[in-house]
Write a protein that binds this DNA or RNA. Sequence first.
DNA 1: GTCTATAATGGGATAGAC
DNA 2: GTCTATCCCATTATAGAC
Lengths: 204, 204
Amino acid sequence: MRRLAYADRRAELVDAAIRVIAREGLAGASTRAIVAEADMPLGAFHYVFGTRDELVTAVIDQITEQERLAAWIDAGPTDLEDVLVRGLEGYLRLLESDPTRELVLLDVAAHAVRHDPDAVQRQWATYRAGAESSLRYAAELADVRWTAPLDEIAWSFASALDGLTLTWLTGRDGEAARRHIRFLARSFAALAIPRSAQEAPDAH
Amino acid sequence: MRRLAYADRRAELVDAAIRVIAREGLAGASTRAIVAEADMPLGAFHYVFGTRDELVTAVIDQITEQERLAAWIDAGPTDLEDVLVRGLEGYLRLLESDPTRELVLLDVAAHAVRHDPDAVQRQWATYRAGAESSLRYAAELADVRWTAPLDEIAWSFASALDGLTLTWLTGRDGEAARRHIRFLARSFAALAIPRSAQEAPDAH
DNA sequence: GTCTATAATGGGATAGAC
DNA sequence: GTCTATCCCATTATAGAC
């Protein structure tokens, strides 16, 4: 019964690969560099993965599982705009404290858009789903109701997060990012109304 | 006087490199592939560029020069929101008609964030400057005035464009993108007031 | 000056020893 | 089953022929 050991190896290789990509980028993540990081012989690689591309796909799936919007600060009920600001600032702090995490994501996504479009599509769908549940929770905290279909708002929110990430990564301007966050929070908050309110009879 | 021929070669190599990256990604853009695309002998490469990284930097600079927001449709004066929608939809059409252009950008940026941060910073600064002048022009068309410093709005706008691009590239959902554009236009239009109006005495 | 031919390296994959 | 040693290919860069 070496099945467990096999799964362990696979997991260790994926983790090692992510560490290498974080340090050196995807281009530097050779099979040799990865097994060195995992402290395994080279043979172990092709024992677990048929090919290098297989590993990259495994890396994508692994990254996808990690939740992007981990830390919504839920200190009591408040204004929706405040909730959104705090949530987005939590994300920005995460980004600032470990940029490599999103750097890996960017690197792998740039590769996968060409070589494994399905995996990328799954990945971004997962992000949108995460955004959706976060937004649902935020509205609950603030006791408001979204005035547009939540999946559409989530698409916009996830897109805004992509933009915030990419722009910050290319410039590392925390102040500008925080100003932008306040703008985002205001813009999204405008899509909700008090839960008790009558439906506005106009629509868009 | 072969100086001109030298510059021509350089330009041709950069263009060839961009075509190869568009087709195969940065990883596939080997010196050999590039000179083959340019129909030159391999020796010509190192005659012009000392190293491959030098070429990549040249590619970044070349891409940066191309304006991102080329086509603001300026058919007469209208609502700011309409102007923004038309401008963003113009960009989206451009993106849809030639996704490889932004794909190259993404690929090169992912590489350069690690290997040439200054070049990336210059690049994104250029985008922000482009956004700034586009927004200035849009306000003129709609006869409104921005209520926040234009460079801050431009930061947000460029970031929104990054997000739109990345999210579309990963999912290719044009309908969702167009819904998102309407949301963006509404959000940014909320940052402007009629040019004649008194300054609102509250500020943020 | 231009390019061919080659050196030197590092890569993915595998055959076969243990 | 596990890993060492090796194959073979592609790459960057260069040395030297034209």
